[in-house]
Simulated scan of single mutants.
Amino acid sequence: MTEVSSWRKSTRSNGGADSSCVECRVTWRKSTRSNGGADSNCVEARQRAEGFQVRDSKLGHDSPVFALQSADFVGLLEAAARA
């Protein structure tokens, strides 16, 4: 998997010049099986304290994010390896 990172701004930021705002880096890892083509079916994943999150790499930040427990994420990887 390769890393894809971006900055996320706090939803409490009002966008004004004097607003105190925090941005944090969120790192997604893209599957090495992604060929970058328009027809590639690929996912990105990131580890969270409570497990993992998975999203569609083509949609990026517009993708729905699915939360998985660690055991479920391992099961997903095992099923994908068999496919």
Rank of each mutant, 00 (worst) to 15 (best):
S20M: 04
S13G: 13
A49R: 05
G36P: 12
S31V: 03
C42K: 10
R33T: 04
G37D: 15
R25G: 13
C42A: 13
N14T: 10
W28C: 09
G15Q: 15
C24E: 05
A80L: 15
V26N: 07
V4M: 11
G60F: 01
A79Q: 05
R82T: 06
S20D: 11
W28N: 09
N35L: 14
A79F: 05
V54C: 00
R29V: 08
Q53N: 01
D18G: 12
C42H: 14
G37R: 07
W7T: 04
V74T: 07
R33E: 02
R25F: 12
A45L: 02
G60S: 11
A71V: 10
L59M: 09
R46H: 04
A38S: 06
A45E: 01
D62R: 10
S57H: 07
K58W: 09
S34D: 11
S20L: 13
E3W: 00
T2V: 04
L76C: 15
K30P: 10
A49C: 01
S57C: 13
K30G: 04
G37I: 07
V26M: 12
A83Y: 00
N14E: 05
K30E: 10
T2R: 12
E23K: 05
S70K: 07
A80D: 15
S57N: 10
A83S: 07
R29N: 15
V22I: 13
C24Y: 12
T27S: 07
V65K: 08
A71Y: 08
S5M: 03
K58G: 10
E23M: 13
G51F: 00
T27K: 08
E78V: 12
V43F: 05
D39H: 06
S70N: 09
C42V: 04
G16N: 13
R25T: 06
S6W: 08
A80K: 09
M1Y: 01
C21V: 09
R82G: 05
A81G: 05
S6G: 08
E44T: 00
T32E: 08
R82K: 06
G75S: 12
S40C: 12
D18C: 13
D56H: 05
T2A: 03
S57F: 02
E78C: 14
T32R: 04
R33H: 11
S40L: 15
G51M: 00
R55F: 00
S19I: 09
S34I: 03
N14F: 02
D18H: 13
N14P: 13
V65H: 01
R55V: 00
K30R: 14
K9L: 15
